[in-house]
């Protein structure tokens, strides 16, 4: 085990652990935000640069500071490393800059975006964004496209985290979408008109940190915070059948995987509980599910948490015993 100090808190982790995962082991508000890293997807991370932290001392043997900020999601810790995240003004400033970069070409369509309320970029903007944009140029725009009859792609909103690409590579047997072009013209696309159609392809919706990939079967345009999330399970031959069903009254509006506070699909019995497309898109009838109880939405998000509490206050309190 190696010892690391992050924002003055010491933690012991396995050698080879990344700074971000060491921080997650400590938990709380010293955990850097991660827009592209996704612990369940091999190779993810390093791209968005929101998780930048300052390394004030490289290791016990070489205590020199690292000259540049490093991406905490892809930098392994050393014994005796000292990391500053929220205690560093430099980190704060540069994270604000990264946030600004992510937002300059992002449309201001939160009011009509399905992801509003559970969008990681919205959270990031809330915590690190500037009040006014300094961007006077034309935003780049793409037309929304259907990737089959179940998934919609709003490329305008994409932050090119590549999570959906890794998901398709690692969860499905044939990837049919990817990144076309390059630079600020890079876009997620199938290139030819093609449905992403595979038992597990719907998971691209769950991993997308923003509203770029959304569920077309989401029955009703509703703000997520008006829905009541319930943990539910079903007998499924393709997946573990452990999901969250989002209800309005007695109706299921949508089905998603069970996400933890970092927005990642939870492990259940030691396996990541990705759900299959049948569970996600087709089981919209309450009788198909065994409801286990309300789902506590435990995201760090200021925006979403307030909303859910307003909706679910009593029940979630009961559930967590507080």
């Amino acid at each position: 085990m190696v010892k690391v100090i992050i924002d003055d808190i010491e933690v012991e982790v396995e050698p080879g652990t990344t700074i971000l995962n060491a921080a997650r082991k400590i938990g709380g508000d010293i955990v850097p935000p991660a827009m592209c890293y996704y612990s369940k997807l091999q190779g993810s991370g390093g791209k968005c640069r929101t998780c930048l932290v300052e390394v004030a001392a490289g290791s016990a043997t070489d205590p020199r500071p690292m000259p540049k900020l490093v991406a905490s999601c892809s930098t392994p810790v050393n014994d005796g490393m000292v990391v500053k995240n929220k205690t560093s003004q430099r980190v704060y400033d540069n994270r604000a800059a990264v946030t600004e970069f992510l937002l300059i070409n992002h449309p201001l369509d939160c009011p009509v975006c399905d992801q509003a309320g559970e969008c990681h970029l919205q959270d990031l903007g809330f915590e690190h964004g500037k009040e006014r944009t300094r961007y006077e140029e034309k935003r780049r725009t793409f037309d929304p496209i259907d990737i089959g009859d179940k998934i919609k792609l709003h490329m305008n909103r994409c932050i090119l985290c590549y999570r959906c690409v890794y998901t398709a590579n690692q969860l499905t047997d044939q990837r049919v979408h990817g990144v076309m072009h390059r630079g600020d013209h890079a876009e997620i696309s199938t290139y030819i008109e093609k449905a992403i159609d595979n038992d597990f392809s719907g998971n691209v919706i769950d991993v997308c940190p923003v509203g770029a990939l959304t569920d077309k079967t989401f029955r009703f345009k509703s703000r997520v915070w008006f829905l009541k999330p319930m943990e539910a399970s079903c007998e499924c031959t393709k997946c573990a059948g452990k999901a969250v069903i989002w209800m309005f009254g007695d109706e299921i509006y949508r089905v998603t995987g069970r996400k933890d506070k970092y927005g990642e699909i939870e492990d259940i019995d030691g396996k990541t509980a990705w759900i299959c497309n049948e569970c996600r898109f087709d089981k919209k009838d309450k009788s198909m599910w065994k409801i286990e109880g309300p789902r506590v939405i435990n995201r760090h998000s200021v925006i979403s948490q307030n909303q859910y509490i307003a909706d679910d206050q009593i029940e979630s309190k009961k559930l967590t015993g507080k």
Binding site: R175, V176, G178, V179, Y191
Partner: peptide, 25 residues
């Protein structure tokens, strides 16, 4: 063209999308 790229994908035993990604890069 798309058929050309699909042909190359088949020759190399890779997915067509891998060729589209490269050709557009």
């Amino acid at each position: 063209s798309v058929p050309t790229m699909n042909y190359v994908a088949r020759l190399l035993n890779i997915q067509p999308i891998e060729v589209y990604e490269v050709a557009t890069f």
